[in-house]
């Protein structure tokens, strides 16, 4: 029995993938997640220009999950490149591929950021068209419509020198249509899902808790939504899927694989179970496979389809 599995042309030591934005883009922290058992790690989404992000408060665990509006804090594409280069150098002896993540405000800007970030030679490029926390010209519009999602995918694919995965939003009427559109436009894989828009309001002051007022829901509350999205996507397209949303333990990972995920994203579990959450989830996954006679991750895939 083994946790080792294939994803695109990579052989991973575990199906767990550190999700984008979790513990940032620090080479040391991303390496720590890799040492803790992640099979791949994703850097924080990066745009063309530096962004400080939103003022505090930026996150809260309300008991059922986490709401965050960090606001895409990043150093800008030019400053991101050396960080990614260092991260890749640290990860490569561990056999852990690096996924860079990008966002932008226009299709042309997506191409420009892709061109810069590809200088760092990431193993895979994740295209974040779905961050719910930055209003107006970022994120939501691109993930909301098949046409805009495809336009971004096409522009990034043309500029990229590595395979690309497009990260989709859950709050769309028909996620399978968006998935089909980005695959037709050249996506090599799909990451699903980003956070779900939501709010936490303090009853005493009557005020929203986050400075951005609204934020993105992640963690336990997101799992049923993520399972349904991955299920719909896996039935609609043939590319591999990084199934992300609410995976906190080994059983959650098994469910995500059953829904059709090829590998499994882990984000908020770093908060609930510590930076070594991947090691804990790997151990639980191994135990589940042993108890239920599954010899490989491939055998767990798509059982719900």
């Amino acid at each position: 029995m083994t946790l080792s599995c294939d994803f695109l042309n990579f052989t991973l030591k575990s199906p767990l993938v550190l999700a984008s934005g979790i513990i940032g883009t620090s080479p040391a922290l991303l390496t720590r997640a890799a040492r803790a058992g992640a099979g791949m790690v994703t850097a924080k989404s990066c745009g063309l220009a530096p962004r400080a992000g939103h003022p505090n408060p930026v996150a809260v665990d309300w008991g059922g999950g986490v709401l965050n509006a960090i606001g895409l804090t990043n150093p800008g594409a030019d400053a991101e490149v050396p960080l990614l280069v260092e991260t890749r150098a640290r990860l490569s002896p561990l056999g852990v591929p690096l996924i860079a993540s990008i966002f932008a405000g226009t299709v042309a800007e997506f191409a420009a950021v892709t061109e810069i970030i590809c200088r760092a030679k990431p193993d895979l490029l994740e295209v974040n068209i779905s961050c719910p926390n930055v209003r107006d010209d970022f994120g939501t519009p691109f993930a909301a419509l098949p046409e805009t999602a495809a336009a971004v995918t096409d522009a990034v694919k043309r500029a990229a020198t590595c395979p690309i995965t497009v990260k989709l939003a859950p709050n769309v009427p028909d996620i399978a249509r968006i998935a089909a559109a980005v695959v037709a436009a050249g996506a090599d894989a799909i990451t699903a899902i980003n956070t779900m828009p939501g709010m936490v309001i303090d009853p005493v002051s009557g005020k929203p808790f986050l400075s951005n007022r609204t934020g993105g829901i992640s963690g336990a509350a997101l799992k049923p939504i993520a399972l349904r999205c991955v299920f719909d996507i896996a039935r609609a397209v043939d590319v591999p899927v990084i199934g992300t949303g609410g995976v906190c333990n080994g059983r959650d990972a098994v469910e995500m694989l059953a829904a059709g995920a090829t590998v499994v994203g882990v984000g908020t579990a770093i908060h609930t179970r510590g930076v070594d959450a991947p090691a804990k989830i790997n151990a639980e996954l191994t135990q589940f496979m042993a108890q239920n006679n599954f010899g490989s991750i491939a055998a767990l895939r798509g059982r719900a389809l």
């Binding site: 934005g21 979790i22 513990i23 940032g24 883009t25 620090s26 040391a28 922290l29 390496t31 720590r32 924080k44 992000g53 505090n56 930026v58 996150a59 665990d61 986490v66 965050n68 960090i70 804090t73 984000g267 908020t268 770093i270 908060h271 510590g274 930076v275």
Partner: peptide, 22 residues
């Protein structure tokens, strides 16, 4: 500190130590 709960990475000290979580 921003999130205070080990998610954003802004409180890193030294080589990968999270002040709010570790």
């Amino acid at each position: 500190m921003r999130c205070g709960i080990g998610l954003c990475g802004s409180c890193e000290r030294g080589d990968g130590w999270l002040t709010c979580l570790d």
